[in-house]
Amino acid sequence: MSLFEEMQQAIIDGKAPVVKELTQKALSEGIKPADIFPKAIVPAMDEVGRRMRDCEFFIPEVLIAARAARAATDILRPLLVGDAAARPAGTVVCCTVKGDLHDIGKNIVAMMLESAGFRIIDLGADVSAEKIVDAVRAHDANLVAMSALLTTTMVNMKSVIEALAAAGLREKVKVMVGGAPVTESWARSIGADGYGKDAPAAVDLARSLAAA
């Protein structure tokens, strides 16, 4: 098994310490940090996404795998600053909306997007529309990903889209939404650009929105 394959397996198995060790080993062997992303982390997380979709993996394994992937990205990120070859796939501002503290789903999406090569500006949970607008501006983001897990808070997604429009940023960013009570038709009705029914779907959606 090649080093990249070993890394992929360790990520899929959720073995964070092994991933960390293998990442360091790869670097000490002179492998470029920018190569480790597409050759080890992205394919591993795509496989995790596939297994999640096929019910082989459930949230615990996805979280554990994502945490293992983070053991690699934490080492690689600082090394990639200013590396032109490692341009992120896009910059995503993500959060749960005002009033909503249920952030495990959002965190999974953020970790999977990060492993897919996106730069993540994670504003956390219970985030106001103003904060989202500020972050889009400050980080020159091209995607906003929001989640709501309560029917009582999902209405706040609409206010965010309105605030982005009012700030003149709506043309500049694509907005994707998700969360248990959210549906495709709800997403359309509030003028979002896309809805991801689960984390793998969110990654596919982000890729297509970023490429558009």
């Binding site: 615990p60 979280l63 554990i64 945490r67 503290l101 249920h102 952030d103 495990i104 965190n107």
Partner: peptide, 16 residues
Amino acid sequence: LKSDAKFQEVFVDGLA
């Protein structure tokens, strides 16, 4: 607990 920054980490640790 939800506003405890460590919640998710500890939660994931307790899943297996």
